[in-house]
């Protein structure tokens, strides 16, 4: 575990250009959204800016975690390192999961910077109780991590479909803004319930322990379910790739 996390840290520290580039692009798109939206919608947008900032923050987290894990698995196939991991005593699935955790930590750092810039640009004030935000956001994004693992597994099987799978990132916008109060069943979708709790935490200042136990249980349940499902899909896909003899193909 330490080796995998240490490797991710080394790559992050040694090659910061990717992270910096991601931050610049995310801030740029937010600028377009904010200033463009203000020109079009005027006060209507500025009245709901807190919700937009929180949603955008969660979206950058989700996209960062999802694309990092899904693309990374594709890269491991190309590098020939995935095959090599398969024959280790640990196999690749636990390594992929740990890499996902490392990517999540990395994405938190970059998204924190994006959040700070958004608050500065919009002049908005939010409640940033770090333990509450970290726990709620991490559990929300865990379900996306599961989707990333599943997408990575599909990439291992069908190879060059990474670009198509990246389109799923735009589906996260729908999930983040899902009407969980009107349509209760949407709470079991990835991100939806977590997004609602994060809005309440950051906009209304609700503390982690002030949330109803049922809400927290559902948050944990959705996270574990999608992460577990993604892990199983990944394991199934790699096993099928081994059966078809395409594990190392790229």
């Amino acid at each position: 575990m330490r080796a995998v996390l240490y490797r991710e840290l080394l790559v992050f520290v040694r090659y910061p250009a990717n992270a910096v580039g991601g931050i610049v692009v995310a801030v740029f798109f937010f600028g377009v959204l904010f200033y463009g939206g203000r020109m079009v919608a005027g006060r209507a947008l500025t009245d709901s800016i807190e919700g937009i900032v929180v949603g955008y923050f969660l979206w950058t987290l989700s996209v960062g975690a999802y694309s990092a894990i899904a693309n990374d698995i594709g890269s491991e196939v190309q590098w020939g390192t995935l095959e090599r991991h398969v024959m280790t005593p640990f196999g690749f699935a636990p390594v992929a999961l740990l890499k996902g955790v490392a990517k999540l930590v990395r994405t938190f750092l970059t998204s924190a910077v994006i959040l700070a810039v958004m608050l500065l640009v919009t002049g908005t004030r939010l409640h940033v109780n770090v333990p509450t935000v970290v726990v709620v956001a991490a559990l929300s994004v865990a379900s996306v991590l599961g989707c990333g693992l599943a997408a990575g597994g599909v990439t291992v099987l069908y190879k060059r479909i990474g670009n198509w799978l990246n389109l799923l990132q735009f589906g996260f916008i729908v999930l983040i803004s899902a009407p969980v109060f009107e349509l209760g069943w949407t709470r079991v979708l990835p991100l939806a319930h977590g997004s609602a709790l994060l809005q309440r935490a950051m906009v209304d200042g609700v503390h982690l322990l002030a949330f109803p136990a049922a809400d927290l249980a559902l948050l944990v349940g959705v996270a574990v379910a999608y992460l577990g499902l993604g892990y199983l899909v990944f394991r199934y896909a790699t096993r099928r790739a081994r059966r078809l003899g395409v594990l190392g193909d790229y």
């Binding site: 490797r7 080394l10 790559v11 040694r14 090659y15 190309q78 590098w79 020939g80 390192t81 095959e83 090599r84 024959m87 280790t88 005593p89 190392g248």
Partner: peptide, 19 residues
Amino acid sequence: AYAHVDAMLEGARNDYWRL
């Protein structure tokens, strides 16, 4: 079983080039 094994399958690949 696999704790005893390692393999070099594709020459210059197989390693992390950024390390």
